[in-house]
Nucleic acid binder design. Structure first.
Length: 580
RNA sequence: UGGGGUGUCGUCAAGUGGUAAGACACGGGUCUUUGGAACCCGCAUUCGCAGGUUCGAAUCCUGCCACCCCAGCCA
């Protein structure tokens, strides 16, 4: 298990499994399955289910099957199958030889349907979809029986055979379970088992023109694979009655369906429909856009599989529908990367500084540890220092507020690993914008300390100007500006897209060692965050870095507090004025 | 006026009759050449509400309330 990954906490599903193991219900077997429909790319919500199912199998010495729920050929494609398998592997899970497709069971599903017909438990209905809907009743009123409900077994057998043989057009007839049109659970009002779809299936080709429905397929697939715990999301709770009914009527092996609450994450959207729309309409740059919480998007952003797994462990599993704040995800990413990413220096928004008393043309090299908390762990690199260098524009303020520890006129700060410098002069352009700083340095402070032991409050990062590696840095932020963009009935969720979800900085300056950065490497740019050398856009000598996540920013919090206090003081003052 | 679920700290989440785990957040402190990390301390007399049973209730009973899901030939 990766560093930082905690012992899984208990949850109601683990309790069920442990109880089953005690009672011997399944003979100690634990077999789960991950059953995606291959009609889209996997996202963070699927990751929760993957971690749950594969994690359970791992922890209880069982196995987890990979099964594609491919019963609707009009929506499904091979491309999705490939991408799903790639993503699950990338997340760190493996199904070994247990790769299945619901379509592999079409023959036995057909035989099971025949059996149901013979037992008088299913019938062919000639009604149209509209008619069936009209006779289903409502939430409070029972439905009524189809006029075709009382057909003889022979007639049903004949009709179903002819459906199978392609004698009827799409939609002409369906096979329905004969249960109870007055059942309080709508799912049980003679549900459709098979429909006609004269469509080529991506795996079975033209072999079939009738395709089984989810409720009929899923339970029997679970049964065929001898699944023990069939874990799905809450919206299938009503379907469990049908899951159990089918298995009971047929008298076959009967797994237990268990439902859990799907993941809801704030400041993003998760439905396949919306994700697809964002891609198709160009709001993002593709399925792997780093702002998308698809597995591919997170991978491109630089998230690690360990971080995603850690996140899934931490949020837990329950039946309560909850909305998880993005900080859970970001925190998991930081915690994972904190112990893994080498530290380097990069200036995102450069401001030039010249040291007036540093010899022109002189270059020094400092040895800097990649991992200061444990220097031997990752070794060190040489970082050149010279008379001219860049600092972060926001690390200088001409008129700094309280508690600002960084550079300001007359103020001394430490340049990380280098010297103490004191700002002596501020140079501005016509518009009054600061263009350059002049400083003096203390030669006795080499390495970052002085013989007199005087303290400097702030340490800032820097990059030597003549040695700097220019780079493009992309700053990613949450895609939406409100917690639940889909919750507004009369507004489109796209109205809430965050215009600053991507900010590209073309002029970042990185320390010399980063000229050799390999695509796919992750670093911490000290004081700024974790960054990922983009595997696609990096060019030799011209790196492109994606910001994976920022560091916790205590200074931002202080600023906010100061702002709040100021606002409150102003309100108070106004009140006093009114009174007076 | 149907059925199925869920309600425990700001946010997740244990707990299933014996007197409210843990994590994140938050507050305070130590340390610090990242305002990062690490470390220490604090943080629900109370479990949606109201009754009841019991020596004892978040857990059992009754009644309310709130929210979610279900009327695809989607999954």
């Amino acid at each position: 298990m990766a560093s930082g990954e905690s012992v899984p906490s208990t949850n109601f599903i683990r309790n069920i499994i442990e109880e089953d193991n005690r009672s011997g219900k399944w003979g100690g077997r634990v077999v789960t399955r991950f059953p995606p429909e291959p009609n889209g790319y996997l996202h963070i919500g699927h990751a929760k289910s993957i971690c749950l199912n594969f994690g359970l199998a791992r922890d209880y010495g069982g196995r987890c099957h990979m099964r594609f729920d491919d019963t609707n050929p009009v929506k499904e494609e091979q491309e999705y199958i490939d991408s799903i398998m790639e993503d699950v592997h990338w997340l760190g899970f493996d199904w070994g030889e247990h790769l299945y497709y619901a379509s592999d069971y079409f023959d036995q599903l057909y035989r099971h349907a025949l059996q149901l017909i013979k037992d008088g438990k299913a019938y062919v209905d000639d009604q149209s979809a509209e008619e069936i809907r009209a006779h289903r009743g409502t939430l409070t009123q029972p439905g009524d029986n189809s006029p075709y409900r009382q057909r003889s077994v022979e007639e049903n057998l004949d009709l179903f055979q002819r459906m199978h043989d392609g004698e009827f057009p799409d939609g002409a007839r369906v096979l329905r379970a004969k249960i109870d049109m007055a059942h309080p659970n709508l799912v049980m009002r003679d549900p459709t088992l098979y429909r006609i779809r004269k469509v080529r299936h991506h795996r079975t080709g033209d072999k079939w023109c009738i395709y089984p429905m989810y409720d009929f397929t899923h339970c029997l697939s679970d049964s065929a694979e001898r699944i023990t715990h069939s874990i799905c999301t809450l919206e299938f709770e009503d379907n469990r009655a049908l899951y159990d009914w089918v298995l009971d009527q047929l008298g076959v092996y009967h797994p237990q369906q268990i439902e859990f609450a799907r993941l809801n994450l704030e400041f993003t959207v998760m439905s396949k429909r919306r994700l697809l729309e964002l891609v198709k309409e160009g709001y993002v740059q593709g399925w792997d856009d780093p702002r998308m919480l698809t597995i591919r998007g997170m991978r491109r952003r630089g998230y690690t599989p360990e971080a995603i797994r850690l996140f899934c462990e931490r949020i837990g599993v329950g039946k309560k529908e909850s909305w998880i704040d993005m900080y859970w995800l970001e925190k998991a990413v930081r915690d994972d990367l904190n112990t893994k990413a080498p530290r380097v220096m990069g200036v995102l928004d450069p401001l030039k500084v010249v040291i007036e008393n540093y010899p022109d043309g002189q270059v020094e090299e400092f040895s800097c540890p990649y991992y200061p908390d444990d220097p031997p762990a990752m070794g060190q690199r040489r970082v050149p220092f010279s008379r001219e260098f860049y600092i972060e524009r926001e690390d200088f303020m001409e008129d700094p507020p309280k508690k600002f520890w960084r550079l300001a006129p007359g103020r001394e700060v430490r340049l990380r690993w280098a010297y103490y410098v004191t700002c002596t002069q501020v140079i501005k352009d016509d518009q009054g914008r600061v263009t350059e700083l002049r400083c003096t340095y203390d030669p006795a402070s080499k390495g970052g300390g002085t013989p007199d032991g005087r303290k400097v409050q702030g340490t800032i990062h820097w990059v030597s100007a003549p040695h700097a590696v220019p780079a493009t840095v992309r700053l990613y932020d949450r895609l939406f500006s409100v917690p639940n963009p889909g919750a507004y009935k009369d507004r489109d969720y796209k109205e809430f897209l965050n215009p600053e979800s991507l900010v590209t900085l073309p002029g970042a300056m990185l320390e010399a060692s980063l000229a050799q950065a390999q695509p796919g490497q992750r670093y911490q740019f000290e004081r700024k965050g974790f960054f990922y050398a983009d595997p696609v856009d990096c060019a030799p000598g011209r790196p492109v870095f994606n910001r994976i996540v920022t560091l916790k920013d205590s200074w931002a919090k202080i600023l906010e507090q100061q702002k709040r206090e100021e606002a409150r003081a102003q309100r108070e003052a106004k009140k006093q004025k009114k009174k007076g």
